[in-house]
Design a protein around this nucleic acid. Structure first.
Lengths: 205, 205
DNA sequence: TCCTAGGGAGAACGATCGGTCTTTCTGCTT
DNA sequence: AAGCAGAAAGACCGATCGTTCTCCCTAGGA
């Protein structure tokens, strides 16, 4: 741009085609299912040519994996952001499940992208399936740590319960009544947190 | 049709090809996903010709619908069978969730066929999606009736909780630790049933 | 006896699948 | 000024998609 700043500039377009591709893929894969979306449609909607597609991704499955990993990264970032605003573990825990409620009630919610992806990639050896499991492991670990930090009497037990109720909320929000799911979710979280008799009484604080 | 026993006999082969087709489809669709299985493979493994396939089903989607409806019918039949052996609603309720535990722990469990099918058929107008919702409505209704018959103080609330925990168990049994899921499931059922303070104290009776 | 419905076998349909190729043009680095 | 990486544009590949077709054979009802 000018002398003194020879660096590669603040990436005016870091790799626009790649980003467009991933964004388009995320929207289509999530809304319609992965196997239901072909490469043709992807590159057309992303305004990208075939050659460009295969220059950035080794193939469709690699793009699918990138899609799942991007969802994972987004949730991790969302959590990190919340973690910088909230100090108490119990509050962070509630913020975490609050985010789930918002997701479920948000427009265009179509189920958990990880559960849906796993439904289409049953083989555990698949990178896609592995990415799903990796996200779930991360989520469970975060719950475990927060529960322990909050002084819960039985973090493993509580984490198991919270993971199950999260999955139930995701499925129910897609194939059932969203409002009911959200209220049930909140109630269960209060119960689980309240049952670890320490400094984590229910209530938004 | 004619004197004596002109009837179509006790169906020596009611429609063997059709049954083979549906059985093969059920196994493949469940194990590998629906869009991942083509007609070619279907008819080859079922030892049926293309013409025969299209004589029995209008197309692939009709077979998929039949697959989902067959799963639904099997579960309804399983429930009816249990209902004839068990009188008390509370016991029947426990048998119902006991069946879920067995399913989750059974060999080859690959998640809930209804949840998985819905992941591949997001459009609510699709017969497949509708069949999934129909099954879920039936399940919820059964829970509701059993809870009411058992004298639970808040059947709608309890039914919601049980549906959510069922979904959580199905997902967790596929993408998590099966043993943990089953024990958590049993605990939650006890809690939910026990909270309706009437004649439904926990315990297998 | 005929006759016909149902199944087996397989060719063929257009469409789309995921993937590779060549060519041209632009924009940056050297 | 030269050169090169990345992207646009699009032809092209074999394979498979779901679907329809013809032909033949066999078993069961009229």
């Amino acid at each position: 741009m000018s002398p003194g700043f020879p660096d590669t500039a603040p990436t005016p377009s870091p790799s626009a085609p790649r980003d467009r591709l991933l964004a388009t893929a995320s929207a289509l894969f999530y809304a319609e299912g992965i196997h239901a979306v072909g490469v043709e449609r992807l590159i057309t909607q992303a305004s990208v040519t075939r050659a460009t597609f295969y220059r950035h991704f080794g193939g469709k499955e690699e793009l699918v994996t990138a899609y799942v990993e991007a969802q994972d990264a987004a949730l991790r970032a969302q959590y990190e952001e919340a973690a910088q605003l909230i100090d108490e573990p119990a509050g962070l825990l509630r913020a975490l499940v609050g985010g789930i409620s918002e997701t479920v009630c948000g427009p265009g919610f179509r189920g958990c992208p990880f559960i849906n992806a796993a439904a289409e990639y049953p083989d555990p050896a698949t990178p896609v399936h592995r990415a799903v499991l990796a996200h779930r492991t991360w989520f469970r670990t975060v719950l475990l740590e927060l529960l322990a930090a909050a002084g819960h009497s039985d973090p493993p037990w509580a984490a198991r319960r919270l993971v199950m109720i999260r999955d139930g909320a995701m499925v129910g929000g897609y194939l059932g009544e969203r409002d009911e799911v959200v209220t049930s979710l909140a109630t269960v979280v209060d119960e689980v947190l309240g049952s670890g008799r320490t400094d984590m009484e229910a209530g938004p604080g």
